[in-house]
Design a protein around this nucleic acid. Structure first.
Length: 420
RNA sequence: GUGGCCGUAGCUCAACAGUAGAGUUCCUGGUUGUGGUCCAGGCGGUUGCGGGUGCAAGUCCCGCCGGUCACCCCA
C-alpha cells in the first residue's frame, strides 16, 4: 500500500452500519428469535452469495428497483453482477435448480443481507438484513396462514403484544378480477397496482389514476375496490389464523405490496403505536415465479422482515434487551508469579464451558476490576500467592459485590447457577 | 433522483461576525490484594471538507461529503 499523508477516514460507507459489540448484541438477539421461531415451525436454514447474475432480478422485482436501486457492475469476465436487493428470486432460483430432488413442500428460511442503492434515511439504509421465510410447493389457506403465523410468532417472541401490531391482509386476485371485469390492458396492471399501494400517501391519487386508465374506468375501479371488504378466501384464512392463535389480523383490501410477482394473498404488518404507525414488513404468495426457471408451476408463499425496522420497533416499544458480554469471568493477576497459575485455571474453566478472559495488563487489581466492570463482565477472580498455595479462589459478583470462596472444580457450577 | 433542516472535543451540547467552552468519557494520582462514590490534576479541536465575502468567519454565501425529514420507492 502506498503511504500517504492523508489520514484515513473512520466513517463507514454511506448508508451502511458498523456493528460494535453492543450493536451486534442486539442484532444477534433479533436473529436468534427469528431463527428459533422459524425452526419451531419446521423451517430449514439456507443461504447464498450476495452476488447474483443481474438478469435474475430483471422483470421480477420491480422496474425501478432493478434499474435505479441496485448495485450492479460488470466483472472482469464481462458478466453483469448485482448485489442482491432481495432474497426471493435467489430462493426461487435455488429451488428451481433442484426441483426434482427437493421434497415439497420446502420450508426454508434465511437471515441475509440485501443491498439497495438509494438515499438513506431512518429505517431505510443501503444494506440491511432480513429474515426470509418461505414455504414452496403448496397452495391454499393452510400455507398462507402458516407463513403469517411465523411472522406473528417472531413479533411475539421479540416481546410484542398483539396490541402493538396488526396484520393487514388482502388478496391480489381481488385486483386481478377487477382488472379483468374492466377489461384493462395487461401492461397497465403493475402500474395501477403500485399506484394503489401508495393510495393513502399520494397527493393526486385520483388524477393520476384517471390519466392512466381514463375517467370512467378509474371511477369503476375505485368503486369496485371500495365495495370489496373481504372475500370467502380471506375469511377462510381468518379462521385458519385463529386456530394458530393469531387474533390481530384484519382484512384491508388497500394492501397490495410493491413487488410484481405476487399472485394471491398479500399481507403487511403495521406498528399500532401512534408514534411509529407505519408498515414494518410483509409478504405474500407468488405462484408463478418458479416457473420462470422452466420448471412446472410451483406455488410459493413467504415474507421478509428487516432488522432495521425490527430494531426501531423494539426501541419504540421499550423491548430492547440490555447488553451482556459473552465473557462470563475475568481472571485478574495480582503478581507476576501467579501468571502461569492463572492461565492454567482459565484453561481448566474453558474446558468446563466457562467463557473467561485473563487480564495480563500488570495493572493494580483495582484497575483490573474497573476494567471488568466497564466491560460488564459479571464475575472476577483475582489470583495471587494465596490462591496458588491454597487452591481456593474468591469468586466476586460485580453487580452484587458478593464474594464466595471455592475450589477450582466448583467454580463453573457456581457461575452457571448464578447466571441462570 | 428532488426539496427542507442539521454537522463544534470520543459522546451530549454552549459560544452577539470579535480570545473556541461546559458536562461526560478517557488518562494520572489520592488508594502497592478488590470496581462503582468522592477529591485533585491532565489529555483531548485545522469548528465535516474545499472555496468565497469581511479588518475579522464556528457564525454570512457557494460547492462537496455525511446525517436526518418529506417525496420517489419500499424493508
Amino acid at each position: 500500500m502506498k503511504a500517504t499523508n492523508k489520514k484515513l477516514s473512520t466513517e463507514s460507507y454511506k448508508g451502511v452500519r458498523d456493528f460494535y459489540p453492543e450493536d451486534q448484541f442486539i442484532q444477534k438477539y433479533i436473529f436468534e428469535h427469528m431463527a428459533r421461531i422459524c425452526e419451531l415451525f419446521g423451517y430449514e436454514e439456507y443461504n447464498a452469495s450476495v452476488l447474483e447474475p443481474a438478469e435474475l432480478f430483471r422483470g421480477k422485482t420491480s422496474e425501478e428497483i432493478v434499474n435505479e436501486q441496485t448495485y450492479t457492475f460488470t466483472d472482469r469476465g464481462e458478466r453483469e453482477v448485482t448485489l442482491r436487493p432481495e432474497m426471493t428470486p435467489t430462493l426461487a432460483r435455488m429451488v428451481a435448480a433442484r426441483a426434482r430432488e427437493i421434497p415439497l413442500p420446502a420450508r426454508w428460511y434465511t437471515i441475509a443481507n440485501v443491498f439497495r442503492y438509494e438515499r438513506p434515511q431512518r429505517g431505510r439504509l443501503r444494506e440491511h438484513w432480513q429474515l426470509n421465510a418461505d414455504i414452496v410447493g403448496v397452495e391454499g389457506t393452510e400455507a398462507d396462514a402458516e407463513v403469517i403465523a411465523v411472522a406473528h410468532g417472531v413479533m411475539r417472541s421479540l416481546g410484542a403484544d398483539e396490541r402493538n401490531f396488526e396484520i393487514r391482509v388482502s388478496d391480489r386476485r381481488i385486483l386481478d378480477s377487477v382488472y379483468a371485469e374492466l377489461d384493462m390492458e395487461p401492461e397497465k396492471h403493475a402500474e395501477v397496482t403500485r399506484l394503489l399501494d401508495r393510495r393513502a400517501k399520494h397527493e393526486d391519487f385520483e388524477g393520476t389514476l384517471t390519466k392512466l386508465v381514463g375517467e370512467k374506468k378509474a371511477r369503476e375501479l375505485m368503486d369496485r375496490i371500495d365495495r370489496t371488504t373481504s372475500t370467502a378466501y380471506l375469511e377462510e384464512l381468518r379462521v385458519a389464523l385463529e386456530h394458530l392463535g393469531v387474533r390481530n389480523m384484519i382484512v384491508d383490501t388497500k394492501i397490495t405490496r410493491g413487488f410484481d410477482y405476487y399472485t394471491g394473498m398479500v399481507f403487511e404488518v403495521f406498528d399500532t403505536d401512534t408514534a411509529n404507525r407505519r408498515s414494518l414488513f410483509g409478504g405474500g404468495r407468488y405462484d408463478n415465479l418458479l416457473s420462470l426457471f422452466g420448471t412446472a408451476k410451483i406455488p410459493a408463499v413467504g415474507f421478509a422482515m428487516g432488522d432495521v425496522t425490527a430494531r426501531d420497533f423494539l426501541e419504540t416499544h421499550n423491548l430492547m434487551p440490555s447488553y451482556a458480554p459473552a465473557t462470563e469471568l475475568m481472571i485478574a493477576i495480582i503478581e507476576e508469579d501467579a501468571k502461569g497459575h492463572a492461565m492454567k485455571l482459565a484453561q481448566d474453566l474453558r474446558r468446563e464451558d466457562v467463557t473467561v478472559s485473563v487480564n495480563f495488563s500488570g495493572k493494580r487489581v483495582g484497575d483490573q476490576i474497573r476494567y471488568a466492570d466497564k466491560m460488564k463482565i459479571p464475575f472476577v477472580i483475582a489470583v495471587g500467592a494465596k490462591e496458588r498455595e491454597s487452591g481456593r479462589y474468591t469468586v466476586k459478583n460485580l453487580s452484587s459485590g458478593a464474594e464466595i470462596s471455592l475450589p477450582a472444580d466448583r467454580i463453573a457450577e457456581h457461575l452457571f447457577s448464578s447466571l441462570g
